[in-house]
């Protein structure tokens, strides 16, 4: 890690390097069989950690998901389960 004088940041967008997924205690696990691709999780995620892939499926970006569980709570078909994070 580089420690710039006075903690000054010289490059824009460097926050992306901070993988906040490391803070997660509970891990959302999406069951693609149950998922109806409604996009509710994508709308509600406060960290933009739900992504839509080329096939139109939703995926969770574990680099930035903090495990808040809002997606699991909002999912109308209960396709997301919160599981204890094990590292």
């Amino acid at each position: 890690m580089k420690f710039n004088l006075g903690a000054v940041i010289h490059e824009p967008g460097s926050t992306k390097k901070n993988k906040t997924g490391g803070w997660r205690a509970m891990r959302p696990v999406l069951d693609k069989e149950k998922c109806i691709k409604c996009g509710t999780c994508w709308v509600y995620c406060p960290d933009n950690a739900v992504k839509k892939n080329e096939k139109g499926e939703f995926e969770i970006d574990y680099d930035y998901c903090k495990g808040c569980g809002i997606c699991a709570n909002e999912c109308p078909v209960k396709a997301i389960k919160m599981e204890l994070e094990k590292k």
Binding site: M1, A7, V8, I9, P12
Partner: peptide
């Protein structure tokens, strides 16, 4: 351009 006064996490 630079950012002055950002957060530093426990690792830095």
């Amino acid at each position: 351009p630079v950012s002055i006064g950002p957060i530093a996490f426990p690792d830095s």
